Simulated scan of single mutants.
Amino acid sequence: MKLLMTLMTGLVVMLTAVGCQSPKTAGQSITATIVDGDPQLATVLRVDDQRLARYVSVKSVNSAVKHDGFLQAQVEVLNNSKRDYAIEYRYLWFDANDMEIYPGKRPWQQAVLHGGESIRLQGISPYPEAKAFRVQIRPMP
């Protein structure tokens, strides 16, 4: 009985600790849509983390529909500081009805931006029905 109580107490403490952690959200996200098949984008930048925005800024957003019909995207980001800054990013893909394709299935990728460096975060939709994308960027823990 004491062992059971000890295990239950440990489980409650563990669940409480996990429940109290703040969720990791994207600090910045860029949403872009192909308009009438034209790779000229309707682009929206959303910043949720002002600290991240001080260090990392978005320089450009480009996309193209490849010859096989898959959407290719590229977002150029700049490290505004003199120090290395590590980020995570992921692409989310949307169909013509603005419905996310296979939500929750995209993994976070890691990148390190050296001081003053700009890099291009590339993505190719794994789905030919993708007509829009969103890139989420957050600082690495």
Rank of each mutant, 00 (worst) to 15 (best):
R134T: 11
T9F: 07
G10A: 15
F70K: 13
L71Y: 08
D98S: 14
A130S: 13
P139L: 03
S60L: 02
T31Y: 09
D84L: 05
R90F: 05
V75D: 06
K2R: 15
S29P: 00
Y85L: 04
K131G: 04
F94C: 03
V135E: 05
A73G: 08
M8I: 15
D48I: 01
M14L: 15
F70S: 13
V35H: 06
G19T: 10
Q50D: 09
A53K: 02
L7Y: 14
Q122H: 15
I34L: 15
V58P: 01
E76L: 07
I119K: 15
V58Q: 04
D48E: 12
V18Y: 13
V61I: 06
L52C: 09
V47W: 00
S63Y: 04
G69F: 10
K66E: 14
Y91K: 03
D38N: 15
K24I: 03
V35N: 10
P139A: 14
A42K: 12
V77H: 04
A42P: 00
G123L: 05
C20Y: 13
I124P: 01
R106D: 06
T9G: 06
F94P: 00
G115I: 05
D48M: 05
I30C: 03
N80V: 06
M8Y: 11
V18C: 06
S125N: 07
V75P: 00
M14W: 12
